[in-house]
């Protein structure tokens, strides 16, 4: 299992309705990209961190491990904004005087938005979200394919990891040529195993009267009005505080 999904399955909010967590997490993400980056993004990030580490109970270390990857993307994505092509000096590339401010704003915005997404991901297993997409208008055939993809991905990742270990044990990573051969073997093995597993699943399901629809038990949960009210209050509070502080700054 992947660390974020494992954390979502053991989350304090595991049994809350995915809609509640979507409104909260994705609402904060939308605020991060729509409010002015300063002071909006730091406020959104602070509110998201408070929810993540407080009521949602996500351990700091797990959060950091998951967050450092998007943070790396945010930093590398902000670097090009420090430079401009051409300029008054006549050089091909020059430092942009307004670059640091733009790069900082972008870094703040993407970091806050990523935290909002992580709030949703750390509290909501994908297996809770996908079957409910039918009610959102996604065709059942696509939802079924997504469910099979989700469940088979973990088995394949595990398979590929074991094959990789076996290749390493047989000196399959010892030279550049061997690494390429091993990598191609890994890709081909993933294909063979995926289709082999699909064939066996098909045989098993056919024996149980498979008619083309995968019936999955979705735990019955109710949308909490109190949770949604609290979420609306938090989102409204962050928006109001941002606009007030922005007014004070300007």
């Amino acid at each position: 299992m992947l660390p974020i999904d494992a954390a979502a399955h053991s989350s304090r909010w595991r049994h809350r309705h995915p809609l509640e967590k979507a409104v909260l997490g994705l609402g904060l993400t939308v605020l991060a990209i729509t409010l002015p980056a300063w002071p909006g993004a730091p406020l959104v990030a602070a509110a998201t961190l408070a929810v993540l580490l407080g009521p949602a109970g996500v351990p700091v270390r797990r959060l950091w491990r998951a967050f450092r990857l998007p943070l790396g993307f945010c930093v590398t994505g902000a670097v090009p904004l420090l430079f401009r092509v051409g300029g008054p000096g006549g050089g091909l590339v020059a430092l942009d005087p307004a670059g640091p401010a733009h790069a900082t704003q972008l870094l703040l915005r993407t970091s806050a938005a990523s935290l909002g997404l992580l709030l949703f991901a750390f509290t909501t297993p994908v297996s809770d979200v996908v079957p409910r997409l039918v009610r959102a208008g996604v065709p059942p055939a696509v939802v079924d394919v997504a469910l099979v993809t989700y469940r088979m991905s973990f088995l394949l990742l595990d398979s590929v990891s074991r094959v990789g270990q076996a290749q390493a044990a047989r000196l399959g990573h010892n030279s550049r040529a061997a690494r390429w051969r091993s990598l191609a073997g890994l890709g081909a093995t993933a294909f063979v195993r995926a289709f082999d597993r699909a064939g066996r699943l098909q045989t098993g399901l056919a024996g149980r009267g498979y008619d083309g629809t995968l019936r999955v038990l979705v735990p019955a949960t109710r949308v909490s009005g109190r949770f949604l009210t609290a979420t609306a209050a938090l989102l409204a509070g962050v928006t109001a505080l941002t606009l007030v502080l922005e007014g004070l700054v300007t």
Partner: peptide
């Protein structure tokens, strides 16, 4: 999927293969 119900599993397997790739 409507014409060949068994395709759901193959397409799911293809999705998993793409994810792993």
């Amino acid at each position: 999927v409507r014409e060949h119900p068994e395709s759901t599993l193959l397409l799911g397997a293809s999705g998993a293969f793409t994810f792993v790739l």
